[in-house]
Amino acid sequence: MECTFEPVILCFCCQWCSYAAADLAGSMRLQYPTNVKILKVPCTGRVDVISLLKALEEGADGVFVSGCLIGDCHYVLGNQRATKRVAYVKKLVETIGLNPERVEMFYNSSAMGPQFAQCCRDFTDRIRNLGPVCKIEKTATGPTPEQRASA
């Protein structure tokens, strides 16, 4: 049977290195699957556990974080913090029966457009092979972030 599964993949990029790498991949016209959607954060240090879990809970099939190369973080240690959190989230999702491979940490400097595109291709392939995430149903009364903000 032909596989028609198109995973939804969220990628957090820091604004200094990896977001620039993603832009460079564009300048170089390097092609990668449309599944990856990028969310810019000032530093991967801002990517918290709840954001990663929330993405999976709401139905993302895979989430990855792309930061500066280790040692090159614009904010000294943000990417190392993010690395630890990603490792922690991997353990957490495993305990609830999700494959930890759905969460990953990558490092791309702003000159690494080709490598960034490759990360997108590889990660999409990985998630495609893992299949859809089993959607964790929201509690009936669970508010959306917008509702929560206006509350």
């Binding site: 969310l39 954001s51 929330k54 709401e58 993302a60 972030p145």
Partner: peptide, 9 residues
């Protein structure tokens, strides 16, 4: 941040 994630999904 959660609003972006929510909108994505």
């Amino acid at each position: 941040i959660l609003a972006s994630i929510h909108a994505l999904l």
